[in-house]
């Protein structure tokens, strides 16, 4: 790959950010969790804030999910284990990611948002639809863009019939 192309892929353009998000959605839908983890920086965090206070801080409010990398790695060990009963057999998921926007660029970091619809299917159940938006903090690492914070904010007023968030949202 030429120098120009390498530099290009790590620029905060809509195309590059969309490519990253679309790749991420594909890997998660395919349950390629280790490959997905490689899209994140080693100090990345993953949050699903509480439905009733989506803008909360995980140090002050009870989140649905608030993982540092230590726990995220354990979550993936769990998700790959057949004794992870909530996700065994694995749910079939299909993610639609759209409305990708780069909100802010600050040197080698940027904030980007996207809308999501995640359909989750399990045997003999009506599909559950998780709708919401992502807030990403991205970082330029070498020739790539990496995710160092990932916040999946659900629109639902309460989880209710969505039940658990037992897969990676």
């Amino acid at each position: 790959m030429s120098e120009a192309q390498t530099t290009n892929r790590a620029e905060f353009t809509r195309d590059n950010v969309e490519d990253l998000f679309f790749l991420e959605a594909e890997l998660l839908d395919a349950w390629k969790l280790d490959e997905w983890l490689a899209l994140l920086t080693p100090d990345a965090t993953y949050y699903v804030p509480p439905n009733d206070s989506p803008n909360a801080d995980p140090r002050h409010a009870l989140f649905t999910i608030a993982d540092d990398m230590l726990r995220l790695k354990e979550r993936i060990i769990r998700l790959k284990d057949p004794n992870c009963h909530a996700e065994y057999p694995h749910s079939r998921t299909r993610r639609m990611v759209s409305n990708v926007r780069i909100k802010d660029i600050d040197g080698d970091r940027a904030t980007a948002t996207a809308n999501f619809l995640v359909y989750r299917h399990r045997r003999s159940e009506p599909p559950r639809v998780f709708a919401g938006h992502y807030i990403y903090k991205l970082k330029r690492v070498g020739a790539d863009l990496k995710i160092f914070e990932r916040r999946a904010v659900l629109d639902a007023e309460e989880l209710g019939a969505l039940g658990a968030v037992s897969f990676i949202l």
């Binding site: 509480p50 009870l62 309460e158």
Partner: peptide, 8 residues
């Protein structure tokens, strides 16, 4: 603590 969990 702020942040309620309501699920079926």
């Amino acid at each position: 603590i702020s942040g309620v969990q309501e699920y079926d």
